[in-house]
Nucleic acid binder design. Structure first.
Lengths: 236, 236
DNA sequence: GGCAATAACTTGTATATACAAGTTGTGTTT
DNA sequence: AAACACAACTTGTATATACAAGTTATTGCC
């Protein structure tokens, strides 16, 4: 399984070594020149591999000192995009129930984002979850995963914990970006029921499109949030 | 105001040219080799400047074609930055009216963020604007600027255009980060009136704290958004 | 005119090298 | 022992060059 480009190979090797625990959190990676000798290449190539890993949050550099493995935050780091575990996170009790186990189906015809021909063709893995903070339902989440070979097999276990962690550990998919649109709407009956709100209460309605480290692989989700008690927060 | 490093200079020049509209949305930047000649340097240096701009979302590349100015949100997905005049930008008519011209006053006692002693001491420059898309009011924005020497003099002109552009060009303040909390709430009468909505309609209620390139300088704003017609969008 | 080969562009990957600048440890001096 | 100077590391910036690979315009043929 050789990569086409040397810098990709270096990137992959290092990433695997980090994921397998060979380089532990906080530990120092070999210096650029050491890696140059290993791979019989030059610093520019090594630095290119490094910069990919930095972009994905695996490592960081310190001028004059070296390159180090980032704390475990990275796996959850992009979860902060999600907001849920951030707001809910440490101080509050977080819980998730699965309303719809993963099933294969077509993308909805009125899907919120214009899909590529390939995405339409292949369909999606769809599941729904309800998230609680301190035993209060705060977020209703519908997720659409492209029906890619990459994600097979896919089952209920994969979404019991953090789905993003599963993406990272099981499928080696890293979230690299997010585009979202946010509205405040009056919630419909079904949403109200799930979130234990009054019909027509204001809820956040969010459509998201996650970009990943795999070209042309995007993950979609629609959220309804009860923000009476907990606000949705972001940091960038 | 020369930058220490050549790639930073190139980066800054390009960024200024983009922000000033010299390179318009979607237009092609000079090729790497053209810029090499301009700056009497090599592609590696130009590419480094480009990669910073890519990271910040100002530009994107296409193999074999060229480098282009991104149309969507730049930098940190700040709607009020690229947001208003540019998300709404080309397709829609954007307009802004000033409800409250900049005045010096104390921070409100029930301010949404816990301020530092220094910030409290100095007070703030406060102003309010109402923003329109296609002549429909969509966003009510209250801004709190620390009463820093840096911002003097400060007047109405500074917020007529994009305030973030003013920050960049007049005060050399760059936005480097954002923390925000978002809620969906029923709008109160005053907000409803400004946004021409019915009382108790759902609106987005957003509190923001912008980090800047100046240490300990933060900018705050509170937004009310009518998302009936236009959603709030982010890209990171 | 229509079509295909090709030339002239673009960005992508790669090597080789040099010096600057920040950090750390090793000495030597005091 | 403490202070300082310096060497030996690290990453940061920079130049010069080459070829690969994708895109577009041009050329020349039919």
């Amino acid at each position: 399984m050789n990569e086409k480009f040397l810098y990709k190979q270096v990137y992959k090797d290092l990433k695997n070594s980090i994921l397998s625990g060979q380089y532990k959190t906080g530990s120092k990676l070999p210096s650029e020149s050491e890696l140059c000798e290993c791979y019989h290449t030059t610093r520019a190539t090594i630095r290119q591999a490094f910069s990919e890993l930095i972009k994905e949050g695996f490592i960081y550099k310190q001028h004059g000192k070296g390159t180090f493995v980032k704390s475990e935050m990275r796996s959850l780091g992009l979860l902060s995009f999600k907001g849920f575990s951030e707001v809910v996170g440490e101080e509050h009790q977080a819980k998730t129930t699965i309303l719809q186990v993963p099933v294969y189906k077509q993308f909805p015809s009125d899907f919120f984002y214009k899909l590529s021909a390939e995405e339409k063709e292949l369909g999606c893995i769809y599941f729904a979850r309800l998230r609680f903070a301190d035993d209060v339902p705060v977020m209703l989440e519908y997720t659409y995963l492209p029906n890619n070979e990459l994600f097979k097999p896919f089952d209920e276990q994969d979404i019991k914990d953090s789905f993003f962690k599963t993406l990272h550990t099981k499928f080696e998919v890293e979230i690299t970006g997010l585009a979202q649109s946010i509205r405040a709407i009056e919630c419909e009956k079904s949403v109200a029921k799930a979130l234990k709100m009054k019909h027509k209460s204001p809820v956040l309605y969010i459509n998201r499109r996650y970009a990943t480290n795999k070209a042309n692989l995007h993950i979609y989700s629609t959220l309804y949030c009860n923000t009476d008690k907990y606000a949705m927060s972001h940091n960038f």
